[in-house]
Design a protein around this nucleic acid. Structure first.
Lengths: 228, 228
DNA sequence: GTCACAATCCGGACCGAGGTCCGTTTATTG
DNA sequence: CAATAAACGGACCTCGGTCCGGATTGTGAC
């Protein structure tokens, strides 16, 4: 028997069938990313805010590694259990910290101005999307790494689903004959924060090279004279 | 101050400079994967064997999740500290369990018969390589998932390096004008055990579709009429 | 307003597992 | 048979995660 009271904030347990959304561009903005405040008791909401603030402060002063669930609880003057009830687990807390930036990004590519948003041809949107993700990764890279779930759940995080699905939709327009679902996973791989971290921080490659590689990859996969 | 006595088996702590190997095809067969037995004291070697056997037994009867460091130690009639000294951490132990299969696979694509081994044209070797990896992933998928290191170290595991480097070498022959280092990461992404697990076990896709997608990807990236 | 009741939340004791330390034991070498 | 380097073992620490008795809050009735 699991808790039942705090699933609003927390990614649904999965495996949920959750067949692919069929109305491509119209999925609700924050798929599971928010739905926070609706029905939270006053004290719960207050504690939630306190916790996020405390966590952000800890990240700022001690880095993501210093964000211990106990430390956050203590810094927020709250019991440890409260942190887990609200955010499910450490990954959930860290994800919530990234939520704001995440939603801004989603808004940008789902409804913002072209070439990132609708209006530009799909391949161009793909190019812009990758560049934007790479740039976004360089900020709060540490947090994104720390927020990454274990191997079992890496591919079922709601945020990742949204990103990947967006790529898939664009791919369908650009290369309808391909297996766009799988292809989208491949493209996502190139934007994986862990890979970006490895290449830039551990191997010392300049970000521009990753950007070039993305553009090249899009070309190869969905580029001009494609027929298969 | 770290331990210094058991680094033979264990991936070097990193950050070690470790500049990229320059002699492409000639790297020693097991890059960091073995170098085990050479200078182990008799009792140490015996305990190592005991531990691996115990771990394998535990995997067999309780699944990878049941492989607790304490349980392994107990099953091998050995102290907990010994397990860590020998294998560094849980990932190291699990990796060691996969070592045999890993080396066999390396031998197959580095020196075995074509099209996997040398002798076939690079694109064909690439195709065969992916298919082989996908098939290999379906066996001991659970173990491979469990052995995956945390986000920080995912891209610096020696075994992964070897695989990726092999792809890179083949790519250089097939598409010399491309950024083969980065492209190889992309291709590796498609073969990531976690992805394979997600797609086959959680989404229910048949393995054959992954294989088709791999062939298609190789085509797109390094396929026939390429000029850029 | 206030009272009572149910739903929700809180807190911190508790557990298991990974990882570390260091005093002790054992293999090797000459 | 020393002497030395290496290995051993298990107590110990930290941290993520769980549990449940008790405290708070929202609500409807009066």
């Amino acid at each position: 028997m699991l808790y039942a009271g705090f699933m609003s904030t927390v990614p649904p347990p999965f495996p949920t069938p959750q067949e692919p959304v069929d109305h491509p561009e119209l999925l609700q903005l924050g798929t599971g990313l928010e739905a926070d405040e609706p029905c939270l008791r006053a004290d719960a909401a207050r504690n939630r805010a306190r916790l996020l603030e405390a966590a952000a402060r800890l990240v700022a002063e001690r880095g993501a590694e210093g964000v211990t669930m106990e430390a956050v609880a203590a810094a927020a003057c709250v019991g440890k259990g409260t942190v887990f009830r609200r955010f499910g687990d450490r990954t959930g807390l860290l994800t919530a910290l990234l939520d704001h930036s995440e939603k801004k990004f989603q808004a940008a590519f789902l409804g913002g101005p072209p070439p990132l948003g609708p209006g530009a041809p799909p391949v161009e949107r793909l190019r812009a999307f990758g560049i934007a993700m790479l740039r976004r990764s360089t900020d709060d890279l540490e947090l994104q790494l720390a927020a990454e779930p274990g191997a079992n759940r890496r591919y079922i995080s709601p945020a990742r689903r949204v990103l990947r699905h967006h790529i898939e939709v664009l791919l369908r327009q650009a290369v309808p004959e391909a297996d766009c679902e799988l292809l989208s996973h491949t493209l996502m791989g190139q934007l994986d924060p862990a890979l970006v971290h490895h290449l830039t921080k551990q191997c010392g490659l300049p970000l521009s090279r990753l950007e070039d590689a993305w553009l090249d990859l899009v070309d190869r996969v969905a580029g001009a004279g494609r027929s298969r």
